[in-house]
């Protein structure tokens, strides 16, 4: 059975989440075809062709796909996808936006955020903020699946030599248009790909105090995240939120600063390899998942930690 993967890309390059999705496809087994839908996305398609394990790249290079609007891309995915046994995308905001729409057009269910492949039709996925793991079996002829990227180790970005084939179909639903984007600019690693993440919560008290975490992160080569409380309070923007409904991270080291540890936050980070919690409340639930807990005032501990590295 062939597998179609909707690539995560920015026209110029392939995003890491695509590599994790290819890993999930390999676990399923079959011919792996990557679809790059965009505008001026030749470079991304070339990069996709080099991914280890990919046999073919389909490029749909058209103005209609320029900003990867779900209304248009889902029509393309549904058209191409009907000949495949599986359609996969990473569970990024883009994948989550487009794939259910394509699934509905194909009249099949979607299985969201799988964390393992048990067999050709059976997968594991977290529910209830990760407090329960469900093993689910699909009876649909086409299995549409989003992949939790942290659960699958990325395949090599180089080493493959897939053929690249242009797709002519231009679907423009004509009912939506892109206005603008505000992209957070940062020299730090991407939150979902970083090997170390430093996150701040309500205990940070305000946005200015996050400067301490940025400084610590720069010493560690880390990304900076936040709890929902810190984002809701306006300390930092939404793209930094780690949790059930924000970003899911699983770095080698996660340092939670001034975060109490609501289950919704734990859902986004508890698969990290090593968790450090710094909180002055010794009863904070974050300590129940932390490998190393430091009960201290973060305004003393973080500068001290920073200077001792």
């Amino acid at each position: 059975m062939s597998i179609l993967i909707l690539a995560e890309h920015d026209n110029a390059s392939i995003k890491g989440a695509t590599l994790n999705t290819v890993a999930a496809a390999k676990a399923i087994g079959g011919d792996i075809v990557v679809l790059v839908a965009g505008e001026g996305c030749g470079a991304a398609a070339e990069a996709a062709a080099k991914i280890d394990g990919v046999s073919k790249v389909l490029v749909a290079d058209n103005a209609a796909y320029g900003h990867q609007l779900a209304e248009n891309v889902s029509l393309l995915v549904a058209e191409l996808g009907k000949d495949y046994g599986y359609i996969l995308a990473p569970a990024t905001t883009n994948g989550k936006n487009t794939l259910p729409r394509a699934a509905a057009l194909l009249d099949v269910a979607q299985i969201s955020e799988i964390i393992s492949v048990e067999s050709a039709d059976t997968f594991k996925r977290p529910i209830y903020a990760g407090n329960v793991i469900a093993t689910v079996q699909s009876s649909d002829s086409i299995k549409v699946i989003t992949v939790r990227t942290t659960a699958f180790d990325a395949v090599a970005a180089e080493g493959g030599s897939a053929s690249v084939e242009a797709v002519g179909s231009a679907h423009d639903a004509g009912n939506s248009s892109y206005v603008r984007e505000e992209v957070a600019k940062s020299d730090r690693p991407e939150l979902t790909a970083a090997s170390i993440v430093v996150s701040g919560g309500r205990g940070m008290q305000n946005g200015d105090n996050f400067a301490m975490l940025y400084s610590l992160a720069d010493k560690l080569g880390a990304a900076v995240g936040a709890s929902r409380a810190a984002v809701d309070a306006g300390f930092v923007p939404n793209d930094m939120q780690v949790g059930q409904t924000g970003k899911i991270v699983a770095p080698g080291l996660y340092i939670a600063v001034g975060i109490s540890g609501a289950i919704q936050h734990l859902a986004g980070m508890k698969d990290s390899k090593v968790i450090v919690a710094i909180n002055k409340d010794e009863d904070a639930p974050i300590f129940q998942v932390a490998d190393y807990g430091l009960v201290a005032d973060l305004f003393d501990a973080v500068p001290e930690l920073n200077s001792s590295l």
Partner: peptide, 17 residues
């Protein structure tokens, strides 16, 4: 989609202070 079973996630080992 049929749910075959549900189980708790792998528990983390309790850490140290």
């Amino acid at each position: 989609v049929t749910t075959l079973k549900v189980e708790p996630p792998a528990e983390r080992q309790a850490g140290v202070k």
